[in-house]
């Protein structure tokens, strides 16, 4: 039976810009980076989670995407409809301050939720909206 997920996709408007954002601001590491013609398989991951990686999938005209697909995906990403997460942290406030100091755009600061978590909301540099989440001690 299936027992785990190994790769998830983050759609991005520009792979180079996204790589800079996720490595320089968010602290991810590069896992795989291969180019074949105009296709680049680029994945990143968290040091603390070695068995899961994220494909930074560039939205551009290709064998897989026609102009209509590109326009549609770009619209959805810019509207924040395709973000993934939540990303977990042990200290939402501290991580928020660290990322904010690096220039990450937050659309909501850490907020105490009644269902046992503290969460903040940020955007990556493509427009993906993502949640930063901390479980509160019970």
């Amino acid at each position: 039976m299936i027992n785990r997920l190994s790769v998830a996709t983050i759609w991005v408007k520009d792979q180079n810009e996204a790589l800079r954002f996720y490595t320089e601001k968010m602290g991810f590491e590069i896992r795989a980076d291969f180019t074949n013609g105009d296709f680049r398989w680029l994945t990143i991951g968290l040091k603390e989670q070695p068995d899961l990686e994220f494909q930074l999938a560039g939205i551009k005209l290709s064998h897989a995407l026609n102009q209509e697909d590109v326009n549609h995906l770009t619209h959805l990403v810019e509207a924040g409809q395709l973000g993934i997460g939540p990303w977990k942290t042990d200290d939402c406030q501290k991580t928020y301050e660290t990322l904010k100091a690096k220039g990450v755009e937050f659309i909501q600061p850490p907020t105490d939720r009644p269902y046992g978590i503290i969460e903040a909301i940020f955007k990556d540099n493509s427009g993906n909206i993502m949640v930063l989440s901390q479980d509160k001690p019970r």
């Binding site: 180079n16 810009e17 790589l19 800079r20 590491e29 980076d33």
Partner: peptide, 12 residues
Amino acid sequence: GISPSAYRSCVQ
């Protein structure tokens, strides 16, 4: 997308 030295510092 990034410089060779930056690449080295963040590649697994």
